[in-house]
Design a protein around this nucleic acid. Structure first.
Lengths: 182, 182
DNA sequence: ACATACATGTAAATAGTTACATGATTTC
DNA sequence: GAAATCATGTAACTATTTACATGTATGT
């Protein structure tokens, strides 16, 4: 699924501007989907050309004018088709785990710092997920599920990290004393 | 961290061919890092040009000739520098969770299928992670940690899915009966 | 007979990121 | 006075994926 279809999905829930779509994913669904202006605005422009969305310009007091997008029937049926065709693929790339792979090459303070940064990151993400409530868009049961999914995963790895942190550092210190495998 | 540095890291553990580097990540570390031939071979060629790795051609009986790469001192120091500079960033994109967000739009059988596919996928990944042992390359404490990290995360979400599966389907069925929020 | 493992490589296409440009308003 | 929020957009760049090309050996 690309950013175009993500926009269609968001607009299927309720009308919104590009800025609002980005905010929605950034605040509550960033644990499984990144969004940036550089991808969202061109996507909406293309969708508009293809007649899958329409928009009106809404002038606001003391705020810049915004384009409020609405999904069309054509857009809706295209999105439903995408939902039946998309395979539930996963892709995860973690520089944190890549660094951890080579933990034995890191200076002790650097390893501590890397782990602490990640712990802080997960803690923040967990708070965000726990606090998420529906706003102008309604929280569907499926969205609720994705939040719980994120909470389950993050809680588990946070617990692991707090448990294993010291053990790992000791293992590495010992490995360095003995000088590794000959 | 890009594929070039990933290759340097792998070669810092032990000499290997491009094919072997790919196999290593594919089999045991695919839960946080994807690798493909199309990225690995050009990366190794560039590293060789830059003098960060060397290689010898090893002719084999009944197997194609392979290029066995070794990291140079220059490569090693470049990799260590990368390790101190790389930020522990995370990025996850899940078409599974994206589909789940719109679970209420999916036909019941399709939802069941999507969830089952994902459960199967996680189950397979868990088996792989649990079975991973060091081969020609040694399992560092850090690698062991990344395996446990994956096991913790996958176990938690698998449990959640088995628990929540029926509940979610009921919630959606009810939502459809009532006709959503007015 | 067909697929998979072994082994290397290229080239086009894609998709997305990053940085830039602009500008009012509000909060610290 | 600086930074963040609101709001839209472009363009260059980068990294990677996908598909193709080639060929032997082994397993089902």
């Amino acid at each position: 699924m690309d950013i175009s279809n993500l926009c269609l999905g968001a607009l299927n829930l309720c009308e919104a501007s590009g800025y609002e779509i980005k905010k929605m994913f950034e605040s509550s669904f960033s644990h499984f989907q990144a969004v940036s202006f550089g991808s969202i605005y061109p996507a909406l422009a293309k969708l508009s050309e293809q007649g899958l969305v329409t928009y009106r310009e809404e002038t606001q007091e003391k705020r810049p004018t915004k384009k409020v997008f609405n999904i069309t029937d054509k857009g809706r049926s295209k999105f439903l088709e995408t939902l039946t065709k998309t395979e539930p693929a996963e892709q995860h790339r973690s520089d944190f785990l890549l660094l951890m792979m080579f933990a034995h090459l890191l200076p002790a303070e650097r390893l501590t710092e890397v782990m602490q940064t990640h712990i802080d990151h997960i803690t923040t993400e967990l708070e965000t997920l726990r606090e998420t409530k529906g706003e102008y868009w309604e929280l569907t049961p499926g969205m609720q599920f994705t939040l719980e999914y994120g909470i389950a995963a993050y809680s588990a790895v946070l617990e692991l990290m707090l448990q294993r942190r010291n053990k790992l550092q000791k293992e590495i210190a010992q490995g360095k004393q003995h000088g590794g495998t000959p």
